[in-house]
Computed example of a mutant assay.
Amino acid sequence: MQTACANSVSSHKTAVDSSNTKSTLLVEKKSFTTQNFQTFGGKTIEKVSVGWESYGNLSTEKDNVILITHYFTGNSHAAGKYQQSDNAAGYWDAIIGPGKAIDTDRFFVISVDSLANLGAHNPNVITTGPASTNPKTGKPYGLDFPVLTIRDFVNIQKQVLESLGISKLYAVVGPSMGSMQALDWAIAYPNWVERMVSVIGASEADAWTSAKLEHWATPIKLDKNWQQGDYYSSQGPLDGLVASLMLITQDALYPDFFNQVGNDINFKALEAAALEDIRQSPSIINWLRARAQARAESMDANHLLYLVRACQLYIAGHQGDLNNALAKVKAKTLFLPAATDLLLMPYNLESTHQMLLDNGKDSELSILPGTLGHLEGVTGISKHGTLIQSFLNK
């Protein structure tokens, strides 16, 4: 059984921003609920809810759908604003909207909050995960929540789409963890996907990537307030979560950008406070911690652990043999790794692209220049929109 809270698939209005005269998409978060969701690992979750939002209008033939799959710390707010007064638009607003690279005058663009979304306490996120109430106990699931995989994120997205009568994707496009979902879509449901765009992505979590991801989980597990995930009635592992987010932020950036921040805040290697007291931190650490603390307020530590595990378990196709999985792809594919990415480095997608070519598939690869590291595919995406637009026009 599944239901969707949506009376219309004409999903946005356009308002005029008087401060800069540019049009802004005004969007609405909607929700989808399904019963007895079966995970890839063979477990059943009695009730699952996720949020979704969309931009543009669904064609009569329902053949103009582009699915945007989001990154690790992100959610379905890919473009537009909920209110004109919002400080910032969705993370890919630079390329999603009327006349933009992913043109909402042409396409119906939709995105779905992941299960166990990191922003579990964000009022604009709807997600079922460890922080949700277990109907069997009336208490939060904690670590009793089933382990999730990237395929589970794909499958809940598929149910949302089917609830809208959609059975075909013009394209699926996503950055980072979203790129994992995009490629898995093209393998799991090849008859659905006509085009696939993987931005700053990977086709599997190799040994290096899996070990790096574990460093994100470790501070939470070492926090005394984590209590094996059973912290919802007491003080949670905030210090551990903040430390994890500090690691994630640095891993997603490149030294050039980070050092520029140091210059901007007048960081010096020999600072008086750090010299005089071991309890004081260098200014760049204070900057990094402040960013993490601000983000941690809306996030849940257990959810971070579940997302880490989903990424560690990832191999496109979820069958153990990447080459055989890629042979199932029917979509045209475009891979956009970032030259300075130290998190999901270009070598992963370069080998994937070559495997597809060796299998006679239609695949393209272009390495994104820039100094933003992994974030070249998120905050730096405006520089690369023409690559995506050109591919979507094929």
Rank of each mutant, 00 (worst) to 15 (best):
S11R: 13
A15Y: 11
D17P: 09
S18V: 13
N20S: 12
T21V: 06
T21W: 09
K22T: 14
K22S: 15
L25M: 13
E28R: 15
K43C: 08
G56L: 00
N57A: 14
L58N: 01
I66S: 09
F72L: 14
F72W: 15
N75R: 12
N75Y: 09
K81T: 05
Y82P: 04
Q83H: 12
Q83E: 13
Q84E: 13
D86I: 00
A88F: 01
D93S: 11
D93Q: 07
A94V: 06
I95G: 02
I95Q: 06
T104A: 02
T104R: 04
R106M: 08
R106I: 12
R106K: 15
G119C: 06
A120S: 13
N124D: 14
N124I: 02
A131I: 11
T133H: 06
N134R: 11
F145C: 11
F153V: 07
V154R: 03
N155Y: 01
Q159T: 12
Q159D: 12
Q159S: 12
L161K: 04
L161D: 03
E162S: 11
S163L: 03
L169N: 04
S176N: 10
Q181M: 12
W192Q: 04
V193M: 08
R195P: 03
E204L: 13
A205Y: 01
A205R: 01
D206Q: 05
T209K: 10
T218I: 11
P219G: 02
P219T: 03
K221H: 08
L222P: 01
N225K: 06
W226A: 01
G229F: 00
Y232M: 04
Y232V: 04
V242G: 01
A243M: 10
M246V: 08
P255C: 08
D256M: 13
F258I: 15
G262E: 10
D264G: 09
D264R: 14
L270Y: 12
I285G: 03
L288G: 03
L288Q: 08
A290T: 11
D300I: 04
H303R: 08
A316C: 05
N323Y: 12
N323T: 15
K332F: 10
F335D: 09
M345K: 15
M345C: 13
S351A: 15
T352S: 11
Q354H: 10
L356A: 00
N359F: 02
D362C: 02
E364K: 09
E364V: 04
S366W: 07
V378G: 00
H384K: 02
G385N: 03
I388Q: 03
F391I: 01
K394L: 11
K394S: 13
K394M: 10
